[in-house]
């Protein structure tokens, strides 16, 4: 998922304490996928309650987001709205590959191949309406603001950073940069020891930031040309050109005036290229949102997570208290009277 231009970009590792008081517009779908694919048991089974409902995302939201809040980071979740019509094909393909992975996972589990099973299980993670509703309900109970974008979440998050309402877009993908995000932060919700897929080794993941202006300067391209590079290697809305990786794409883009002349020279086609480019340059976004962090509702959280989804009450209560010590300020702000 997302555009594969990471190799071209310069990333700076950042220590969590340096992010205190920063507002991060978190790409909700991206983060929920992370939670659903990472928070799993050894054989790949996601966390489940006694009725067999997946709870990996709820665990991720409660514990990992509480960790961020405790570090004085202010998260706001940005959910996807209606995808542009030229994304249909990508979405269809993703669905197929998930179903495929699901089948292989079941086979691997039957054969007792734990490693394989885990890999396929991760690929089978899917987000349905129930998961979205549960996530929003939990965020709301925790006092964490969320909003619904008119179109792509990353575009909305990028807009909020441009406006100065947020400091970073939080996402693992680089797409927010294509939508013009001045600052992106990765690994924020998945910091710590992480197993390398397919290997029995662990690496330490630290958050890293990507500064758009700095990167454009060092690559010697404009925002518009960065999008052209992405179009060459493939985005969520188009397949990349044959045999063109990020490095070759950069060379091509620098040597040509625009994407059209690259297509002419290579004799290849990108469907909807004008529409896609325009979508990255001018995505549909909204200014109709309020960023307000509220006091967590401990009773509601416990009722939802412990009574409905069989979480340990002791652990949930502890997380609530940690959250409350940061968000439980009794002081109101004037914004609510405007």
């Amino acid at each position: 998922m997302g555009v594969d231009i990471g190799d071209l970009l310069h990333k700076k590792e950042v220590e969590i304490p340096n992010l205190s008081n920063k507002t991060v517009a978190i790409d909700a779908y991206n983060t929920l996928y992370q939670f659903l694919s990472i928070i799993r048991q050894r054989d790949g089974t996601p966390l489940q309650d006694s009725k067999g409902r997946t709870t990996s995302h709820l665990s991720g939201i409660l514990y990992r987001i509480t960790n961020l809040v405790e570090e004085d980071i202010k998260p706001v979740f940005v959910f996807d709205g209606k995808p542009p019509d030229f994304k249909t094909e990508t979405l269809e393909k993703r669905k197929q590959s998930r179903e495929n992975a699901n089948q292989k996972w079941n086979e691997a589990k039957k054969k007792g191949l734990t490693e394989e099973a885990y890999k396929y299980a991760q690929g089978s993670a899917r987000i349905d309406d129930q998961i979205l509703d549960d996530a929003k309900y939990l965020l709301d109970s925790m006092g964490i603001p969320y909003l619904q974008s008119p179109s792509e979440g990353e575009a909305q998050a990028a807009h909020m950073v441009q406006k100065g309402d947020a400091d970073y877009v939080g996402s693992q993908d680089y797409d927010a940069l294509l939508f013009g995000a001045p600052h992106v932060i990765r690994n924020l919700t998945i910091t710590g020891k992480r197993k390398i897929p397919g290997k029995n080794t662990y690496i330490e993941l630290k958050p890293e930031t990507i500064d758009m202006e700095e990167n454009l300067e060092s690559l010697g391209v404009t925002h518009s040309k960065l999008i052209d590079i992405a179009l060459c290697v493939g985005t969520d809305y188009n397949k990349g050109l044959e045999k063109i990786g990020p490095k070759r794409a950069l060379k091509l883009v620098k040597a040509h005036d625009d994407i059209k002349s690259i297509l002419n020279e290579t004799g290849q086609k990108i469907e909807n290229v004008d529409k896609i480019k325009d979508f990255f340059m001018n995505p549909e976004v909204t200014d109709d949102y309020q960023l307000k962090w509220n006091r967590p509702d401990k009773d509601k959280i416990i009722q939802f997570l412990c009574e409905e989804h069989d979480f340990s009450e002791e652990r949930v209560a502890k997380a609530c208290d940690r959250l409350d010590s940061k968000l439980g300020s009794h002081q109101k702000t004037l914004d609510q009277w405007f």
Binding site: H330, K332, L334
Partner: peptide
């Protein structure tokens, strides 16, 4: 001056 209130605990 306009000052926002605190919530009574």
């Amino acid at each position: 001056y306009l000052l926002a209130p605190r919530i009574e605990s």
